[in-house]
Design a protein around this nucleic acid. Structure first.
Lengths: 130, 130
DNA sequence: TTTAAATTGTTATAATATAACACTATGTAA
DNA sequence: TTACATAGTGTTATATTATAACAATTTAAA
């Protein structure tokens, strides 16, 4: 499976940065942080991000245009993602719920259509902000 | 409830355009189409879009940066949205499933936290593209 | 009717993302 | 080992998406 694939230099630098970050990181903030490592252009960042998303090492939080490392060990969920987002402090947490992913993976629309790929973003207030 | 609110001129022009469109519309494509009606600047479009999203008349498809009219009559779902997106033709359909919205509205995360607001995007192939 | 709130119009600019092209590294097959 | 395909890199330029700041106007409620 893909997750074990060796990352290239740029991919590794950018993954390490995102993985260490306690919060989702934006592309240009990543760019700023890796310039000292020789990554100078937005495209270098976006290419690494694209690849990391593709292989499931990171996820994009669509509503925030930001990226976080995947913390689900199981590979199936890399294209079936769910997050909770605090509307005050912007804390983002990946939800790993077997019942949720089972429900959504088995969900059929009006036409009986199933979708193995989805992205779900819940919004509310986190513990601290409540 | 908000949906019955009267729209302002710009909001009405932009809502009508989106409502008539068979597919999600992007902000600058909207701008292009409404220039003949006197809306000349991006900000005029974004302001109307923000308001229309806020009152639930339209939804933003986050993964596409595009906007579609809401076709659910019930107001509760305006902040609890679900869509299917065809990865080939980009057709987007709003899903109105009582069981889905019930499941997600009642979903509790590890900490027992519930979220009344969410956005779900399913990806796959539509009937035509399969 | 005056006053607060929302909306508008406008210019400028910020933030996010991709096109195009030349070059380099890496793995695979002859 | 060579040669070939594939993926990744570096670079410049540019496209796309979105907001800041400020003055003027409209609207609706007290």
């Amino acid at each position: 499976m893909h997750k074990e694939d060796t990352l290239t230099k740029n991919q590794q630098i950018i993954f390490d940065l995102i993985d260490k970050s306690p919060e989702p990181m934006k592309a240009y903030s990543i760019l700023h942080d890796v310039q000292k490592k020789g990554i100078k252009a937005p495209l270098q960042v976006y290419r690494a991000l694209d690849k990391l998303v593709e292989i499931g090492k990171i996820h994009k939080i669509e509503s925030r245009n930001a990226f976080i490392a995947c913390h689900n060990s199981s590979c199936q969920v890399s294209k079936a993602t769910a997050f909770s987002i605090c509307e005050i402090c912007e804390k983002v947490t990946e939800i790993s719920s077997a019942s949720l992913s089972k429900y959504l993976t088995n969900f059929k629309d009006k036409d009986g259509m199933k979708y193995s790929k989805y992205n779900l973003e819940f919004f509310g207030l986190c513990k601290k902000c409540r």
